[in-house]
Computed example of a mutant assay.
Amino acid sequence: MRFAPTGEQLELGRTAERLLADHARGNPLPPPWDAIPRTLDSELWASLAELGLLGLGVPEQLGGSGGGVADLCVLAERVGSALPTVPFTATATVAAVLAEHADSPGARAALARVLDGSTVAVPAWETFPSDMVPGRRAGSLTFNDTAVDGVLAAVPFGLDAQLVLAFADEGNGPARPFLVEFAEPATARTSVEALDVTEPMASLRLTGAPAEPLPPLGAHTVARVLTVLAAELIGTGRRALEGAVEYAGMRRQFGRPIGSFQAIKHVLADRSVQLDAAWMLVQAAAHAVDGERADAEVAARTALAAAADALEAVTADALQTHGGIGFTWEHTSHVLLRRARARRSLLGSPAHRLDALADRLIGSGRLS
């Protein structure tokens, strides 16, 4: 099956590239050593909201911009390449959950604030079920009537967030999703060091923070979240590969570009094929989600496993292609590798991702 982009998707990609390129001219990557961002880029965030890009993939009747997950993945791939200091994929995750539960007045009102950019909403990944995010910190939050208590160790853009999607424990039952409002004095925030310099983190201590319980996440929403995450990874991988290919064509040894040596050109060709194959799986997953097919979650987990593996391989090989210069702070290669390592910490090892995929395949009967 072929997934040729539509005219609207091509224009969406060009619009996103122009916007992100304009932003990048005044915001170098990597940032200065003594000026690593601790908060989001409010100007770019406002631009994304003004263009309706925060509502991409959310139905128009819910206040979004319409479009499907395939369209959202086009934008996520561009954001993953540019790596601006904004919580785009994180906010898309929260928006997907709010849209699923839009019959709740509280969720509907929160969704409107998220889409117009007036409320920064992010997930507390560390509380998510272990089949989505490994190493869940069980018991980090507890729910009591209409409020939650506990400590979140590392929340992306935690200094900016006003709304957080988290899972809290209720007695002996499974953890339940909640929308948690951050307000003083119920929330104490502390910036923490992050491996990924494009995604600032904060530790949050919650004491009676207002919270609204939500129903369990549906398989369709889980598939949507994982697919968009995978698209973002592809974008980061493409930037790493493009930088390595450009450098291999310029850097000369023994009177020849190093890209002419088999030890380099074959590796970069392999990584290109790997990224293309992973992107096709992302597109397949996006169409499965948009079509509300029964195999959407399996397709999403397959795409995520392939995209994460490709990102790890290409960022490591890109850094090696650049040699010693790739390790210096002023070069982009190490930033992309750090993003890959941070996403590995979030999404788990290849073995974990394949185990989660196998569980879904066996549960769906596709291996029987």
Results as ranks from 00 to 15, higher is better:
Leu152Glu: 02
Ala153Trp: 00
Ala154Ile: 02
Pro156Ile: 07
Phe157Ala: 13
Asp160Leu: 10
Asp160His: 12
Ala161Gly: 12
Leu163Asn: 11
Leu163Gln: 12
Leu163Ile: 12
Leu165Tyr: 07
Ala168Trp: 08
Ala168Ser: 07
Ala168Thr: 10
Asp169Met: 04
Glu170Ala: 09
Gly171Ser: 02
Asn172His: 13
Pro174Ile: 05
Pro174Asn: 04
Arg176Asn: 04
Pro177His: 03
Pro177Phe: 04
Pro177Cys: 07
Phe178Val: 05
Leu179Arg: 01
Val180Cys: 06
Val180Ala: 03
Val180Thr: 05
Glu181Met: 07
Phe182His: 08
Ala188Asn: 08
Thr190Ile: 09
Ser191Asn: 11
Ser191Thr: 07
Ser191Tyr: 13
Leu195Asn: 06
Asp196Leu: 12
Val197Asp: 06
Val197Trp: 05
Val197Leu: 15
Thr198Gln: 14
Thr198Met: 06
Glu199Tyr: 04
Met201Pro: 00
Met201Asp: 03
Ala202Glu: 01
Ser203Gln: 15
Ser203Glu: 14
Leu204Glu: 07
Arg205Glu: 13
Leu206Thr: 03
Thr207Leu: 14
Gly208Ile: 03
Gly208Met: 06
Pro210Trp: 04
Ala211Trp: 01
Glu212Leu: 15
Leu214Lys: 06
Pro215Ile: 11
Pro216Trp: 03
Pro216Cys: 02
Leu217Lys: 05
Leu217Ala: 01
Val222Leu: 08
Arg224Val: 10
Arg224Met: 11
Arg224Ser: 13
Val225Lys: 01
Leu226Ser: 08
Val228Leu: 06
Leu229Arg: 15
Leu229Phe: 10
Ala230Cys: 05
Glu232Asn: 14
Glu232Val: 00
Ile234Trp: 05
Ile234Leu: 10
Arg239Cys: 02
Leu241Lys: 01
Glu242Asp: 12
Glu242Thr: 04
Gly243Ser: 03
Gly243Gln: 04
Gly243Asn: 09
Ala244Pro: 04
Ala244Phe: 02
Glu246His: 10
Tyr247Leu: 14
Ala248Glu: 00
Gly249Ala: 08
Met250Gly: 02
Met250Leu: 06
Arg252Phe: 09
Arg252Asp: 01
Gln253Pro: 00
Gln253His: 10
Phe254Glu: 12
Phe254Ile: 01
Gly255Cys: 11
Pro257Glu: 08
Pro257Phe: 09
Phe261Pro: 01
Ile264Pro: 00
Ile264Ser: 00
